[in-house]
Simulated assay, not measured.
Amino acid sequence: MASGALGTDWLNAYRAVPRALFVPDRIWPGTPDGTRQTALVDRRTDPIDWLTAVYEDRPLTTQWDDGEHEGDGLGTRPSSSNSQPRMVFGMLGDLDVEEGHRVLEIGTGTGWNAALLAHRAGAKNVVSIEYDPAVAAGARQNLAEFGAEEPLVVVGDGREGFADRAPYDRVIATCSVGEVPSAWIEQTATGGVIVAPWGPLYGGEAIVRLVVGEDGHARGRFTRSSAFMRLRQQRADLPAHETYMRGQAWPADGVRSATLIPPSDVGGWVEQFAIGLHVHDAWWSVERYDDGSYTLWTYGLDGESWASIDWEPGESEFVVYQSGPRRLWDETEAAYRWWNGRSRPGFERFGLTVGPRSTVAWLDSESCPVPGAEWVR
């Protein structure tokens, strides 16, 4: 693989476990950055396009809207997929799994990753948990048709792990989380490794590689950017825009100010991640207009706090309105300035320590916690 993610260590597994055997007839290939989906490709009508998509380095959405989506178009929210090969093998490299390791996978999907793990560790050592019964059934069928010894596929809540086979030497999640479940750490042997996509509600996400210590804490660095579907039980219930306006026209009771930081400066993936470490329980959306201008909206989970910042072509100062108990743009700007003032660190400079009572993010070393980046369980 051109990216280098598929080195000689996993080449035999890649050849032995063909991706095509674990991809359904109907797929929506993703863009290379994994943030959007393209039009349906159906093997029954476009077999060449289907096979091309399968062996490109792209994620493949296989289910929308928890299975409720019908038709050939894009759904509202992707809810299951066959992950991008570069990401699959990058995470497997982070996991450092060896023959005989006991492995727990959270999120079976199509079963391809479980089959790769079984090829390396031995099928009897691999347990994969899938919340969606229909997805689990499809994975079991794919694994059975593959013909090798099958790992155990369990239908259940991935947050709870699978205590019957614990302790595990390795735990890997194929869905993103904002909180690493305690069960994953409790069911991992001391010195064991947990690899998972992690990101704050605000945005941005990266793969974290945690090692479980004798003190019951799991700690480690982020290794690479990622963009996975959220663990279903950790999806946020976001209030509608109208909730914040309370029947008033914008700017309602918003307080006007101005900023020299354009909203585009806070929109990058790592920028969102860094901001989200500081700005908790908040998210953003963009409202675009025909003349090329747009409004960046930020909302708090409290259903009261909001901020808007208008971007117009050619302007160097931007109008801000804020309302509610929190001044969300002020928080965002302060977080951005913190990140910018530390030489714009990438994901690899950040780390995470997850304990029984809290999760703390840090920069460069555990002794340098990110200000305010603590989440109490």
Rank of each mutant, 00 (worst) to 15 (best):
Y336H: 12
A53S: 15
D9P: 00
D157Y: 08
F318V: 08
G268Y: 01
A335L: 03
V23A: 10
G300N: 09
G7T: 15
Q322F: 02
R327G: 06
R246N: 13
E333N: 00
I106V: 15
G341F: 07
T31S: 15
G254A: 10
L277I: 08
T223Y: 09
D330T: 15
A137D: 14
V320N: 04
G254E: 08
A258G: 05
Y202R: 06
T52N: 12
A39E: 15
G4R: 07
G314Q: 07
L60D: 07
R349Q: 14
P85V: 00
Q187W: 11
R327K: 06
E70V: 15
H101G: 03
N82K: 00
H280R: 14
P325C: 01
G292V: 08
S264Q: 09
H278Q: 11
S323W: 04
E304I: 07
E271Q: 14
S264M: 01
G372M: 07
C368S: 13
W338F: 12
W112F: 01
R246D: 14
G268F: 00
Q234T: 11
A258R: 11
W250R: 08
M229V: 14
V266Q: 00
G93N: 08
W283M: 07
G109L: 04
P29W: 10
N12G: 07
W112T: 02
P24K: 03
R19M: 12
D157Q: 03
T52D: 12
P181C: 09
G7Y: 03
R326S: 02
P24Y: 04
D169A: 14
W375T: 13
I309H: 07
G147S: 01
P151K: 08
L363P: 00
C175G: 09
G199I: 12
D25Q: 14
S365D: 14
R165D: 12
F273N: 01
A227M: 13
G109K: 05
V319W: 01
S365A: 14
N142W: 05
Y244R: 03
D9A: 15
D330M: 02
A144P: 02
W28H: 11
A136Q: 00
A183D: 13
C175F: 02
W283A: 04
V97L: 03
V41K: 10
E149S: 10
D291L: 08
R159C: 12
L260Q: 02
A373E: 09
V23L: 10
R326W: 06
V177Q: 05
A137P: 00
G303W: 09
D364K: 03
S343C: 04
V23T: 14
G346N: 10
